[in-house]
């Protein structure tokens, strides 16, 4: 059974984790074309090589990012998502109101 080094919980068996898909940039929903949006939803790159993926340590509810080689299945590094994301970066595309 594979093991993953969770940035918060340390090395744990993979059956404690849930895969959350490849980390991808969401297009600006307010301005992107329907084609761009459809591509984002349905067309995955299916990269053979190093990818960044979402993983959840299920018992602790902690999401993090792993760099995994999809060919060798070696996870080379895991990170807390704060290294990649900030609310400030997301805000301009994700603003909303009640109306």
């Amino acid at each position: 059974m594979k093991q993953i080094l969770c940035p918060m919980n340390g090395l744990r068996d993979i059956d404690e984790f849930v895969y959350g898909g490849v980390v991808r940039d969401m297009p600006d929903t307010a301005h992107c074309s329907d084609e761009d949006w459809s591509e984002y939803l349905f067309l995955m790159d299916n990269t053979a090589g190093l990818v960044r993926e979402w993983w959840l340590h299920s018992p602790s509810g902690y999401w993090f990012i792993a760099e995994r080689d999809t060919v060798s299945d070696v996870i080379s590094a895991t990170f807390d998502p704060s290294l990649f994301f900030t609310w400030a970066a997301a805000e301009h595309t994700q603003a909303n109101s009640d109306d």
Binding site: V18, G20, W54, L56, G61, F64, P81, S82, F85, A90
Partner: peptide
Amino acid sequence: REITRWNAQWR
């Protein structure tokens, strides 16, 4: 899981 994953991005 979905909510926490979104917020892992939105911070």
